[in-house]
Design a protein around this nucleic acid. Structure first.
Lengths: 135, 135
DNA sequence: GGTACTGTACTATACGACCTAGTACACATC
DNA sequence: GATGTGTACTAGGTCGTATAGTACAGTACC
């Protein structure tokens, strides 16, 4: 099974972005291992009832980010050396989302302890290692 | 001084959204108190060198969210009874941003302890009560 | 070589969100 | 009445997203 990808066409987030995020998550959690092949541009496009260009755009972004590697004529594969961001680089990329979260919570008048509780609750549900198909 | 609002025209986030966020934050931190008048649509538009419709859209959203109240012919004012969301309602609105943050962190392979450290560090910098003009 | 697949590049078109421009109306204040 | 207020409407521009179609180079297999 070459990695199941699904998208919500009605969502406000672009289709190509959804594809990028899913592959990124699969690669990060280990559900997709280095060397695994992604569905071909045309195959996935047909499966999702979406234009091949949209998938090509998503794959292009994955290659640009270092998550995947394209081998022209063969296909696109999960990159070998898992984009090793430094601690600082990783923190920099995550900080935007963190800022957004804290800002939203503070704006709504959520007390500090409640923010912490919500955070801890969600963190305990996160899977950091191997991903399973049926959570 | 009727609440200073600034926007970055070059930003990717829409102008009207920036206005909404700034008023929302000012109201939440107490920098703008209940009954305080917002700049008039035309005044703020001229000040920011922006179309009045853009400001009207932002104010409309603030009224819809309950942060402000419009008095036709008089102006727009910070709402009296600070949109008192229930705990559940508040949590529901914040969860999206939290989800995004955790997802981003996990995707980049950030270990649990580092996520927690980053979160605690940022939380300690958040001001939950009175806001000052020069932080 | 021939066929079938792969990724990639390009143009053209359509749609929606955002923003601008201009006008108009109802209301409040003086 | 004059002025300032919020609101509503139409029209147009820009930009990102997605579609449609075509074309080309590389790889794999018979």
């Amino acid at each position: 099974m070459p990695l199941r990808i699904v998208v919500a066409t009605g969502s406000s987030v672009p289709i190509y972005r959804q594809v990028v995020e899913q592959v990124r998550l699969a690669a990060a959690t280990g559900r997709a291992k280095a060397g695994d092949a992604l569905p071909s541009v045309r195959t996935l496009a047909e499966e999702l009832v979406v234009n091949p260009n949209t998938i090509a755009k998503a794959y292009g972004e994955l290659v640009r980010e270092g998550i995947a590697e394209a081998q022209p004529g063969r296909g696109v594969f999960i990159a070998a050396k898992r984009s090793v961001y430094s601690r600082a680089e990783r923190a920099r990329r995550v900080e935007g989302a963190l800022e957004e979260f804290i800002h939203e919570a503070v704006c709504l008048g959520m007390p500090e302890e409640e923010i912490r509780a919500l955070f801890e609750k969600r963190l305990s549900r996160a899977d950091f290692k191997q991903g399973e198909d049926k959570p």
